[in-house]
């Protein structure tokens, strides 16, 4: 597939795969401890220029998302416009990192963002449940890539994970990675269904070993989506993986990040766990649909000193 003009490409897609890790290879997680640690990031106070920098950074990390049965060509096109120019008239804000759509909408999205750095991500592998044979799930990945998707957001088979068939998870991630070709692979763990931090940590370690370029918390389709502590567990997994292998893996919390304050807490956490190196949209994304406008309102508030109204920001 040809590169879209002007698109920022990931330097090299790493196809390196590491051996299947056993559960004992993953450190145990203490729930209370990790939740306390996550709370501590919330005590950080961002003011003035630090806050503006972080807010603007957050906009560039958005995977602006629509994943509805009602998604239409018109809806996707409008969303792509917003992703490219979040704050019309202020080129210092945005563009967003990507748009995230179902495979059928990839073609529409690719056309709509052409010439901009905005990437097109597609959810695949029988999103959100993953309850289908691997063959068809891989076919879906190939279809989305064929339509021009730059990134594939796959789901793992949580049922199999919970019944102890860990090897199957490792194998499906590796197979998806292969099916992605040059497209980037984000692996959705659906942490709300894995239920324990120990499971999240092990699934993260497995996904990374099998070749994930990103690990992602949630589909947004189950009640419990991204939280600070679950993201912290995944960031720590990324940190340890990087220490061990030298390979950077990206992180995408998705679902439930609905306001700017929370987004900034995530960024503080990324900075303190992984360092500033990870603070680009190459390595960190927000999967969100309603976060964009709150970020924009906060940026405007910092500039003007006035609290803002929704009437002044486009609804898409």
């Amino acid at each position: 597939m040809l590169l879209k003009e002007g698109a920022i490409r990931f330097p090299v897609v790493s196809n390196e795969v590491f051996p299947f890790p056993t559960r004992r290879d993953s450190p145990v997680i203490d729930q209370v401890g990790v939740e306390e640690r996550a709370q501590r990031f919330c005590a950080r106070s961002l003011k003035k220029e630090t806050k503006v920098t972080a807010l603007k950074l957050a906009v560039t990390m958005l995977d602006v998302t629509t994943l509805e049965g009602a998604d239409s060509v018109g809806k996707v096109r409008q969303m792509c416009q917003k992703a490219m120019r979040p704050l019309p008239g202020d080129p210092s804000v945005g563009p967003a990192a990507a748009v995230c759509v179902y495979p059928r909408m990839v073609g529409t999205a690719v056309k709509a963002v052409q010439g901009s750095p905005v990437q097109v991500a597609a959810v695949a592998t029988q999103f959100p449940s993953g309850q289908m044979r691997l063959k068809e799930r891989l076919d879906e990945v190939r279809y989305a890539v064929g339509e021009g998707a730059d990134e594939i957001d796959m789901v793992i088979s949580r049922g199999q994970f919970l019944q102890g068939e860990y090897r199957a998870i490792y194998d499906e991630v590796a197979a998806c990675k292969e099916a992605c070709g040059k497209a980037h692979l984000k692996v959705i763990l659906e942490t709300g269904e894995l239920t324990t931090y120990d499971n999240v940590r092990y699934a993260s370690d497995m996904a990374m070993a099998a070749g994930a370029d990103f690990i992602k918390t949630s589909t947004g389709k189950v009640p419990i989506a991204a939280t600070l502590p679950v993201t912290l567990v995944m960031l720590q997994a990324i940190e340890d993986f990087y220490e061990r292998t030298g390979r950077m893996v990206g992180m995408k919390p998705a679902g439930g990040i609905s306001n700017a304050k929370l987004a900034l807490q995530y960024l503080v956490m990324v900075r303190e766990v992984l360092g500033a190196k990870w603070l680009t949209n190459q390595w960190f994304r927000f999967g969100a649909s309603s976060l964009t406008n709150d970020l924009l309102m906060q940026i405007r508030k910092q500039e003007t000193g006035r609290y803002q109204s929704g009437d002044y920001f486009t609804q898409d």
């Binding site: 203490d30 729930q31 209370v32 401890g33 939740e35 239920t195 324990t196 931090y197």
Partner: peptide, 8 residues
């Protein structure tokens, strides 16, 4: 006195 977190 002994303290231990309660979690899963």
């Amino acid at each position: 006195t002994t303290w231990h977190p309660v979690g899963v």
